[in-house]
């Protein structure tokens, strides 16, 4: 990060990392939530501000800041609609970073991921919230938001490379990897690279969010297993593999029970071993410490393994406070 933000917090002091991450997350969410209204009223859509926010988010992703990912993956089930675009943005950037995209590509991808579904709020609520099967009219309404998205984004003044890509993704994001989705395009040979990335992030956010837990009875690998099941039809199979190896089975912020009897919060995926993240172990007896589940003992056996998962939102445990209260790394080999 070669740019540094200097600003005084409303409290008068400097922003701490936690404030910055949360503030950034909320500001992106707020800006995006307000976008449809701005589009509709013709007001300034604050692209520069959006770009700047995304740049800071990318810096945090590059710094491997766990709280940002934690916020994306383990939020409570309220205000999902506002949070969803931000989560998709963070997850997309994370995947893009893993794929080795350049900084300006990541910035482009991040903004695209925030804007591609900008016309979803224009779909009637009764269609969006409908539980049963869609009628032809419902499908038409859903199809319209992708078309509307393309036209809105491409219709903006001074369309640049990013808005063009956002318009493409807006049109394609329900098309599916095998092009069997909607709108039923006749002459598009394949989905755009960004569409394929965003589609995975979108699916994963929907699966790993608390909404999935809320439905109950899910196994911990439910999200990644579902992604792998959708490979080749809904999602790009190779990108899904990259994503799963990057994220691991247990989302950051998950509450897990270890075979040692300890309870922990998933802090960081391993990156290769998908079931062995770094976990902050919490208990009343010792101060929280970080345990690397990929560590083995002298006998060659793993020291700790996840046995069960719990819905973190059912408990009054704020994982974010642990992410910043982790000076004691001594416990890594415990």
């Amino acid at each position: 990060m070669n740019t540094e933000h200097k600003e005084t917090a409303p409290s008068g002091g400097d922003f701490g990392v936690r404030d910055r991450v949360m503030g950034l997350y909320d500001n992106i969410a707020s800006l995006i939530a307000d976008m449809p209204r701005r589009f509709a009223s013709g007001e300034d859509i604050k692209m520069k501000r959006l770009r700047r926010l995304v740049q800071y988010a990318i810096d945090m992703v590059e710094d491997d800041e766990p709280l940002l990912l934690g916020m994306a993956l383990n939020n409570n089930r309220h205000q999902y609609a506002d949070r969803h675009p931000v989560n998709v943005c963070i997850l997309s950037v994370k995947l893009g970073h893993r794929l080795g995209l350049s900084k300006n590509e990541l910035a482009e991808l991040g903004q695209v991921a925030l804007l591609y579904d900008i016309c979803l709020p224009f779909v009637p609520a009764e269609v969006l919230e409908k539980k049963g099967a869609y009628s032809d009219e419902d499908w038409r309404a859903m199809e319209q938001h992708t078309i509307q998205g393309f036209r809105t984004l491409f219709g903006l003044k001074n369309v640049d490379e990013m808005l063009m890509r956002a318009a493409i993704v807006a049109f394609e994001h329900h098309l599916r990897y095998d092009l069997s989705g909607y709108p039923q395009a006749q002459h598009l040979p394949s989905q755009d690279f960004y569409t394929r990335i965003v589609a995975i992030a979108e699916w994963y956010d929907a699966l790993a969010s608390s909404r999935a837990y809320a439905e109950g009875g899910r196994s911990p690998d439910y999200a990644v297993k579902t992604l792998l099941e959708q490979s080749g039809t809904e999602l790009d199979p190779v990108l899904v593999k990259v994503f799963v190896s990057m994220m691991g089975v247990y989302p950051v912020g998950s509450l897990v029970v270890l075979d040692s009897g300890e309870i922990g919060i998933v802090m960081q995926p391993h990156g290769v071993l998908i079931k062995r993240p770094r976990v902050i172990v919490i208990s009343d007896e010792v101060k929280p410490f970080v345990a690397d589940l990929s560590k083995r003992g002298d006998d060659g056996q793993y020291l700790r393994t996840v046995k069960k998962t719990l819905d973190p939102n059912e408990y009054r445990i704020d994982y974010s406070s642990y992410f910043f209260g982790r000076p004691r790394r001594y416990g890594e080999n415990n």
Binding site: H5, E7, A9, P10, F15, D19, R20, M22, G23, L24, D26, N27, A29, S30, R49, R52, L53, Y56, N74, N75, N76, H78, Q79, D82, R83, P312, N313, Y315, R316, I317, D318, Y319, S320, S321
Partner: peptide
């Protein structure tokens, strides 16, 4: 850019 949003409390997870 980093200011807390008014509605943060409802967005945020339960405090410790």
């Amino acid at each position: 850019l980093f200011d807390p949003i008014e509605s943060r409390d409802s967005l945020q997870s339960f405090p410790l």
